[in-house]
Design a protein around this nucleic acid. Structure first.
Lengths: 243, 243
DNA sequence: CGGCGGATTGAAGGGAATCAATGCTTGTGG
DNA sequence: CCACAAGCATTGATTCCCTTCAATCCGCCG
């Protein structure tokens, strides 16, 4: 994959270096853009929007959702600080789903054309590719969960997944964080109903695994919750903590 | 996105031309590779395989699946002839899920490094990006289905989706095709049980919407099945037919 | 023929949905 | 400053879609 100008030497080092450098370049470009903000519930990118910009989330949470003709909603992805959102829209030319702010959101949008311009640089292109693949992998994992996990397992995996992502970005150091999602939104992400989410969270609380009060999430027992999520659904977090 | 050498003119034409040309180049490279075959049930790419090749499916069907530690399986994607599989593995360096042949499968594998080499060409890189985005979109759509559709809707959408993809590639012209999936496999794709798949297919048969007998799938009423799938879940097929 | 993987069908049970009522915050306006 | 409304969360009662368990059937192949 577009291994820079360093000839065709194929040790892994130059590749990851390309990735890192591409990431730096991309991030820098976003940081030059002005910060914008959106209130909770605001639609940052409309569904079907043509040539939508990509943006870097600076602070706050968002999610991408689609709505069926009959009104049923499904939330397909959860977006956290330091995520670059909508890169695939840039590639494809239009946004298939809406992006909505889950709380006060601060972000830096970058024009679709600007991103395309940046991608002339092969390091950046590589990084973009990696970003999309990462999102794809997240989607795959979530799909597996929807297919074969129970409500309890899904909720456990949901919060562990967010915890893992925040941890990896060093945005938190302990299993406590903010996740200002409505139970309705969580339900639309996990394929459940609000009522059942409420009940299941109560059960997890009673089991002293997880505590969700309004915005605040406290994972009381990471190991236990991981077990409740159906096993090694995200061993990466634990591995990372040991390292 | 890497708009060829034609300066920064931004009419849509050169972009789609790049895409087409990149597709041609990529396809040509695959066609130079020797054809391989795999029997039904054979694992073409193992889970977690390092530096797995990509391949073009020439004939037959396949699917990608992951298995949970406790044995539950989920099938995350269905792969048809003319699909290029495992491109994202090439990018990321390893395959997160297994690819399994659903029937007698003929394919042309291309070494990961060879694909990377090809991607020096920006047209090819663009095409690869588009391929990944297409797969991503498919994943998103399927996720929405898993989140908010009933068993009947899911099954309808499942067969309509395959029909749509085959139609678009002009591999078929009428709503009849082969889909040699076990009901167990379909269940693991749609998040149901084999038993319920069987029952639901019977219902669809009784409603004269869909006929599935062993390998052979006959959509008796495309419009009706589309309605059963929860509305405009894939209007593209109908649009294409009218064109 | 006998065995095996897959499909079908029935009966029973359970997990999640639905319906419905209540409580709790938060924000807004009188 | 309080009242009221709106949005979200909680909880109970009931329903139902789907699962589980189990038996049978069918086509296929050694």
């Amino acid at each position: 994959m577009a291994v820079s100008e360093s000839g065709n030497a194929r040790s892994t080092t130059p590749l990851t270096e390309d990735l890192l450098n591409g990431g730096r370049l991309l991030r820098r470009a976003f940081l030059e853009a002005p910060t914008r903000s959106a209130h909770r519930g605001a639609t940052v990118i409309g569904p079907g929007q043509r040539d939508a910009p990509a943006f870097l989330i600076h602070r706050g949470l968002a999610y991408s959702s689609t709505t069926l003709p009959d009104g049923r909603r499904s939330i397909t992805d959860i977006l956290l600080p330091m995520d670059i959102v909508g890169i695939d829209n840039v590639v494809m030319g239009y946004a298939p789903h809406a992006v909505v702010a889950a709380n006060e959101l601060f972000y830096r949008p970058l024009d679709a054309d600007a991103v395309r311009e940046l991608m002339f640089n092969s390091q950046v292109a590589l990084r973009v590719l990696a970003l999309i693949c990462e999102a794809r992998r997240r989607a795959d994992r979530h799909m597996s969960g929807l297919i074969r996990l129970s409500a309890r397992e899904r909720l456990s995996a949901f919060y562990l997944g967010i915890y893992d992502r925040l941890l990896r970005r060093e945005l938190i150091s302990r299993p406590t964080f903010n996740a200002s999602f409505t139970q309705d939104e969580i339900a639309d992400h996990l394929g459940l109903t609000m009522v059942h989410v409420s009940r299941t969270l109560r059960r997890l609380r009673e089991e002293k695994l997880l505590l969700v009060d309004r915005q605040v999430v406290i994972i009381l027992d990471v190991e236990g919750l991981t077990r409740a999520a159906g096993g090694s659904s995200n061993k990466s977090a634990t591995v990372l903590r040991r390292a």
